[in-house]
Nucleic acid binder design. Structure first.
Lengths: 194, 194
DNA sequence: GAAAATAAGGACCGTTGAGTCCACAATAGT
DNA sequence: ACTATTGTGGACTCAACGGTCCTTATTTTC
């Protein structure tokens, strides 16, 4: 087995670099040349390994989604309370306001850029959102069990409420609203749930 | 005055068509040819009248923003109460979930697509958001005056709260969440303010 | 009706896009 | 060492991109 010349690059590492590029610039604005530069490989290697720009994008979304959901799950598992977890989540989102980058969330960005006219992309994004929302649902359930959640609203609606606000906050951060303005907003969101 | 051959097209009408196209497909994904098709004019006319694709985009954003802020203002002026206005606003947002189009909001879309790497666009979008937020601020103030708003949170934060949720709802709609799931969410948002 | 002015049509331009292909390099099995 | 197999570099294709420019058409002013 394992015939032929071995690959000179790490496929996971290259995929991560591609993902970062798509995250930074979006799909349309990322040229193949941009990808080759950041992934540090030749055109033929890219096409042989990933098929096309489009397929590479789909894999990038999946990669992002797995990492995100995983990080979130770990954060929840190591949080003392549901409330602490949720506060951390929202703080993380608005902490991006002080950084220079402001990449937002790849899933949210993608929905807004081309989810509506690309079936495969739409599916990948939906799947990613589901996974992330799954962790948030656990957090809400835990909060109810802990008696920390005052709201009588259904778990699913609370999950959507968090998703809506995280997505909204991300857009506001990206549009340049500064952290000082966002902090009281995060406090308010927390108070409406816990 | 008014020398030379008269224009064969209506500039406002053509601009509106361009705006619709950008709204539908975004900036990068809209080609010059797409614009010529929907605006129904020749390349030279477009460049003579609007300068470039980029300038045309800026004017489209401004057009959208003016119409949106105006519509919102009219809606507020003709609403019986602040609460009725806000409820109508949120219902409008999620009503798009049943339609086939799902264009979202041009300002939100633009923030996510290229606001972070195009200074002029960023400025135009920020201006638009300010105008829209201005109307919402009036609505919040009126709600406080009417004694309808229970929340003790500051007006500015409440405005940001609405903006965040409208933006979040729009993204959810665009990603394909259906109306039945969004209605309880809207109810919850309303209850946290009024 | 001539001249000045503006609009419109469309050929044309250079660049860049994604994607293909082929020659060459490097490995594993025999 | 030879062959089969896979990886890599880069020349190449061709269509689409935004944008320019020249010609022709239509109008107003005098």
């Amino acid at each position: 087995m394992n015939l032929g010349r071995p690959r000179e690059f790490n496929t996971a590492q290259a995929l991560e670099a591609a993902m970062q590029q798509f995250w930074r610039a979006g799909y349309e604005a990322t040229s193949l040349q941009d990808l080759l530069d950041v992934m540090n490989l030749s055109k033929s290697s890219l096409y042989q390994t990933y098929g096309s720009k489009h397929e590479l994008f789909l894999r990038s979304i999946d990669f992002y989604q797995q990492v995100s959901a995983n990080d979130l799950q770990q954060s929840l598992d190591s949080s003392l309370t549901s409330k602490a977890f949720m506060n951390g989540l929202l703080e993380d989102v608005i902490s991006e306001a002080t950084s220079k980058k402001k990449k937002g969330c790849l899933l949210v960005n993608t929905v807004n850029e081309l989810s509506h006219r690309d079936k495969a992309v739409s599916k990948a994004v939906l799947n990613g959102i589901d996974n992330v929302a799954g962790v948030i649902k656990q957090a809400i359930k835990r909060g109810k069990k802990e008696g920390a959640i005052k709201s009588t609203v259904s778990t699913d609606t609370l999950v959507n409420y968090i998703v809506s606000n995280v997505s909204g906050l991300r857009t506001m951060v990206k549009s340049g609203v500064d952290k000082a303005e966002l902090t009281p907003l995060v406090n308010m969101i927390m108070k409406t749930v816990y």
